[in-house]
Amino acid sequence: MNRYLSFLFFSLSLFIVFFALLEYTSMGEYEEDILYLLNEHIVMVVTSCSFAIVFGISFGVILSRPILNKQAENIMQLFNMSVTIPTLAILALSMSFLGIGFLPAVVGLFIATLLPIIKNTFVGINAVSPSIIEAAQGMGMNSFQILIKVEIPNALYVIFAGIKTAVAINIGTAPLVFLIGGGGLGELIFSGIDLDIMPMLLAGAITTGMTAIFADKLVYILSTIFISRGVSPTED
């Protein structure tokens, strides 16, 4: 209960500060733009994140299946390498393949967000204690039941850590999609830098920053809802 209340309190204060800034500072000049771009921004983020979570967890589960056991180490190496690739590079490569606009932006974000989720799902499921799986087999559960009732719930802590990282990367990279024609709050920031207009720059930067912080807390709260109390390592 405590956590949810503090989250609500936090979000409320964030909103109040945001709207106060719009009302009382020169940021207000750009109110229309801010709200429009914020909307665009959120659509992109939510779309790419949702796809990334669905595909990421699915791929992660598939990769963790015993059939692929021998390739497991190689796969891990590949992932460890791919998460080091700078997100700007990923966007740039997306643009070179898909051109400019909304689609390459979402695809680029999707790929950048995908990798930590696949990796953590893979690691998390492999880390589930073999004795629990043996107990489940011994009870007569089939592989699917074991996956759904035992493996995934017990891997959720690690999976959500991956999701949290992925969402952070997504939000951090989202402003950059402006550079490849994707729109969003980046427009205010980059234009503000180029044209040397401080209020515009700040409008973009502050809104982006606040969105990022809010999203981070949101994912955290969601994780506490989904992860069974018996699995999370910290006490309530």
Binding site: S129, N154, G230
Partner: peptide
């Protein structure tokens, strides 16, 4: 799968599912 549902199985490491309550574990 059919066979094992008729046999009770207790292992050395105990193997209770951490994600389930005691009641849920028993009810599997």
């Amino acid at each position: 799968v059919k066979l094992r549902k008729k046999i009770g199985y207790v292992i050395q490491q105990i193997g209770l599912f951490p994600n389930m309550t005691i009641k849920e574990n028993i009810a599997v």
